[in-house]
Design a protein around this nucleic acid. Sequence first.
DNA 1: TGTTAGCACTCTTTCCAGTTGAGTGCTAAA
DNA 2: TTTAGCACTCAACTGGAAAGAGTGCTAACA
Lengths: 340, 340
Amino acid sequence: MDERKQRILQAIVQDYIESAEPVGSRTIARRHDLGVSPATIRNEMADLEMLGYLEHIHTSSGRIPSSKGYRFYVDDLLPSKPLEEEEKALIDKWYMERVRRIDEVFQETARIISHVTKNVSLVLAPQMTQAAFRCLQFLPLDERRAIAVIMTDAGFIENKIVPIPDGAAFEDFQRMALVINGCLAGHTLDAISPAVMKTIREEIGDESLFEAAQEVIHRSLDTGKRERLYLGGTSEILSQPEFHDVEKVKEILLMFEEEQLLKDILHAHLGEGLKVTIGKENEVRGMQECSLMTATYHLDGELLGTIAVLGPTRMEYGKAMTLLNYMNGHLADVVKKFRW
Amino acid sequence: MDERKQRILQAIVQDYIESAEPVGSRTIARRHDLGVSPATIRNEMADLEMLGYLEHIHTSSGRIPSSKGYRFYVDDLLPSKPLEEEEKALIDKWYMERVRRIDEVFQETARIISHVTKNVSLVLAPQMTQAAFRCLQFLPLDERRAIAVIMTDAGFIENKIVPIPDGAAFEDFQRMALVINGCLAGHTLDAISPAVMKTIREEIGDESLFEAAQEVIHRSLDTGKRERLYLGGTSEILSQPEFHDVEKVKEILLMFEEEQLLKDILHAHLGEGLKVTIGKENEVRGMQECSLMTATYHLDGELLGTIAVLGPTRMEYGKAMTLLNYMNGHLADVVKKFRW
DNA sequence: TGTTAGCACTCTTTCCAGTTGAGTGCTAAA
DNA sequence: TTTAGCACTCAACTGGAAAGAGTGCTAACA
């Protein structure tokens, strides 16, 4: 793979991303100053096809990049350009204007990403399991019920109604809260071991009270695992010529409805930094003609969540990468602002 | 509009709903036992077109119903049939299997409606403004902050972090909670008047404390107004031949992204019972080739929210109406089960 | 007088053949 | 090694012909 081949591949990928039409040797020669004639380019293209970087619909059509071609382009040929200052300012402005509560941060992030990249965006919001348990408190509701309020370090508060077992009083619950807080404070929720639970059981003593406690803790774990997913710009993707076929649109919309599937996909990329999965590299049916770019964002070293761009393989990788890299670092600042 | 015309109109609408093709006199004569020849039907069709119930694409095409035609069909010709017992059982099963928390009730309702009708469903979940304020409590968070927990009769609990003003202590907040609970208990949130606020101000005495209280109350009002909207089956609509054109799909998907617009539309129908808005009767651009069927559900006489079916004008009105009527009565029961 | 059969007419859809144009692959010359 | 030239391929477009569905009108019929 000599340098000229690389330049030609780069030219083809860029032209194809722009035009969505198979590109021919003549077009490349005219639009890019490679200093060689179309015939030479044709020879190189034949080689590139042999090597698996390009594809051919039929004998007399131009070339389009294969998944392998995009992969090489993304890994080695992508011209990097930082985000414009004014774009950064605009993004800050959007956050300022439209976000009032912490969960709106993610909604707005999804909006921004889809708006800038003209593709679908996905934002997986922090899961409580990664955040440390902070404290649990009970509030009296009526004679037979109490409200459990559970807080974590990441700024999330959950609540649940618990029935007070016969023979117990609200005061027992308050005592129980002390025990639980003593044992669990600082633990991440998925680090709560059976041994710790056993200690709690012994300290509480009463079996029916412990069952209530267990339910609360179980619930907080359960809620924690329920990561939230925000989708943006599902209609943007329809502007792309590859989605002019309604059947394909349907397939992808159907995928968007399967929230758990999307969460699992994003979850699998958690902690991997910026990663691009191109075309057939995607295992999920319905995404084989798409590329997915994911990035994980952090806050003070603690894993927070995943942001992603989903578009046709012919997406503007450079732009998407630039934006995700920026949001990656920026999102932590925004979250901090809307934290406690 | 004699009876024969009505039967012919009914036959045309039904056939068109089924086939999505303009229907001709011969088809009607063959498929429906009207006892007259195609020629007679042609004459009647010409009359119906004159009266505005039918439309004509070009000289030699069959007829399709106009908005007026659908309107007459829905109002006067719709054959009513109750939901099958087994369908009811299936719906109950779905709720049982998939719903764990109160907000999942609405998500699942949307799923069920879209699944049964093969159209898009919209569910506007209860707004707190309609629910009565139950009580407010504070929990200590640290020296300078407290957590406010607000509960309403409808089973919703919201929380918010409030800073404790300099010079005040957590105990002042507890005193404040007593005052607020005394003044607001039983009020619906939108019935909290300036006069009541003034009383609270006087009873609290301290200005900075009152400001904190005001913020909490304002926040609970604010959250209350944020009705939640659940969408289901956006991909279903693509199976309909009228959405084979990607431009139309895009237009409607774009509408789905404007959550506030959808909320406003559903909100406008709140309290009107079962209502059908057909084709051009819809004022919103992008919905002019669709019909929207809405129904409001109640719980113990208290307004809860709106459920709706959105589909092409050629939707199966009978089925949708049957289902909405059933869900209408049924949803209250389900909500009750998942309430406190 | 309402109903029906017959027929001419309209318009869409489908098919086919011919043409155009973009693009390739190969060969031979520079 | 590069390039010009040329034959070849294939998709996309064009125009016309034929088929088919359906209408509207007229005249006959019960």
